[in-house]
Amino acid sequence: MNWVNAVVQGLLLGGLFALFACGLSLLFGVVGVINLAHGDFAVLGAYVAVLLLPSTATNALWALLFVPPLFGFFGYLLQRTLLQRSLEISPLTTLLVTFGLSVVVQNGLLEAFSADSHSFNVGSLVTSSFKVDEQLQVSYLRLGVLLVAIAVLSVLSLFLARSRTGIQIRAVADDREAAQMSGVNTRHIVGVAAAIAFATVALAGLAYGMTAQFAPYSGSALLLFAFEAVVIGGIGSLWGTLGGGLILGLAQSIGFQIDPSLGVLAGHLVFLGVLAFRPTGLVPARAAA
């Protein structure tokens, strides 16, 4: 092992975290929902793929075609029903509701699929990589995840900056009532934002399932990583989220390089360090993602 390798692998891992974080960030920025079931929904997405793919031999890349749209639809419905309803009571209620959903999803998956780990079949992609030098190999799959993360963030930024719906989403994030008095159907717009967030969650869950084994309880750790990426990068900034994801990936990878049991802890400590020493901008501004 060498340090260059640790840095490169860390950046690749960071792409996955950024992909996880962007849904969390969007949902909070626009909808005002902190989704404690975020990680569990990602894992649910992976299991939905397991369920719907015709056989375990089918290449899981096909799931990319139908699971994210399915989750987008699911996110829209969830927002328009349960989440909307709980938000009208208070943000803290929403928090508790998503926490309850998290427990329901985890244990539902446990009942349906047992505690055994699953993994996807992605054909030869799982092992193929290119060699930079003797000590540095880059997996096509992991590189692909990072590129997908960058692509998703780019498309999302462009969508929020240019499209009519995107501008309305940002307007709602700024001032929901003012958007309403300008004629924006805020409930629908918030639902659309939730749909996008859920589609990216499903995408992140599939990416995770292709690069690692997943089990019903995997979601909790994923939520924490996504959250850390958001806070490290600066709450409310989409590209900051990418930066936060990369920093978190680096911290875990370098920690792992020092001592394999240190990986996750190093990430947490970097997060706490940011919280302790760079608290400015950490108080969530309800700005657009």
Binding site: A171, D174, D175, E177, A288
Partner: peptide, 9 residues
């Protein structure tokens, strides 16, 4: 009242 523009837009 108070204009209520979208400040970040």
């Amino acid at each position: 009242e108070g204009r209520r523009l979208f400040p970040s837009l």
